[in-house]
């Protein structure tokens, strides 16, 4: 009887991004689960997790992204021992944290560190949606702030790769306030004259999109990523609205003026390198 209290309509058809099972892409996979075509370029499929046929960008873990973008052996992790606590004694949160740590092999939904990209010194923060959907609680908020502060201290640019469903509800208002906290630190960051680049990956929604992800000097999106404030399912359900094709994907974002550019994974490092060069290392002040 409680099945339809909220007046839920049938779930809307999902974009390929959610249809494709990330775990389906194992090393031995012969076909792309999105386009069902045979993969031809084994190398590019494995290293960048992009289907050579349909260009579908599969989820990438934070460590894979770090390996992919940074100069070899240049990454030095910062604040790696920051872990979440169950501040509100929220039912089931402790178990969820344990399970997330076990399944993802991570301590939290973001990894921050100092890294060289194409010979330029940067602070790089990378979110990972395999840890509780990349949700932002105290730790994610704090690590983003510390990353920005470290970049200010060293006077080097800040690059954040986002992947998040939004604020972590198990931390209640404290998680919501991380939006204010990261935005406040970024205000100082911008005043200090340093460069901040955000790279939006699938998915970037809710509290993360409405705070630090949107406050960069340059906003780059990965092709086909779901990016928005309210998720498409909620919009479809609440408004009873049929959603336009490609709604909230990176291309939609670009068309509506919400992102500077879309960069395929294969060209991302080169683009970052060019920007860092043009912006004189990102510390022109």
């Amino acid at each position: 009887m409680f099945e339809n209290v909220l007046g839920k309509k049938k779930y809307i058809p999902l974009t390929p991004s959610s249809k494709a099972d990330p775990s389906a892409l194992s090393g031995n996979q012969k076909t792309c689960p999105v386009c069902i075509r045979l993969k031809s370029g084994q190398q590019s499929f494995a290293a960048e997790r992009v289907c050579p046929a349909c260009k579908y960008h599969f989820p990438m873990s934070a460590w894979e992204r770090i390996d992919h973008l940074t100069d070899p052996q240049s990454f030095e992790e910062l604040d790696k021992d920051l872990v979440s606590i169950n501040i509100l004694d929220f039912p089931g949160y402790d178990e969820k944290l344990k399970a997330a740590a076990k399944n993802s092999g991570l301590k939290e939904a973001i990894i921050c560190g100092k890294a060289m990209i194409g010979g330029y010194q940067t602070i790089l923060a990378v979110m990972d949606s395999s840890f509780m959907m990349g949700s932002m609680g105290s730790v994610v908020g704090e690590k983003v702030c510390r990353a920005a502060e470290k970049a200010m201290e060293l006077r080097i640019p800040l690059i954040i790769i986002t992947a998040s469903g939004g604020a972590r509800m198990q931390e209640g208002m404290i998680s919501l306030m991380q939006m204010a906290k990261t935005s406040a630190v970024l205000k100082k960051f911008h005043q200090s004259g340093l460069l901040y680049i955000s790279i939006l990956t699938n998915p970037t929604t809710g509290g993360v999109s409405a705070s630090f992800a949107s406050l960069a000097d340059i906003i780059i999106a990965e092709p086909g990523a779901l990016v928005g404030f309210t998720g498409p399912r909620v919009i479809a359900q609440t408004m009873g609205q049929k959603l336009p094709a490609g709604f909230q994907c990176s291309e939609f974002l670009l068309e509506h003026g919400q992102a500077d550019l879309i960069a395929e994974r294969s060209e991302l490092k080169h683009i970052l390198q060019c920007i860092l060069k043009l912006y004189q290392g990102g510390s022109h002040a």
Partner: peptide, 8 residues
Amino acid sequence: IRSIGQYT
């Protein structure tokens, strides 16, 4: 604002 959040 900066001090909001708890963690270990």
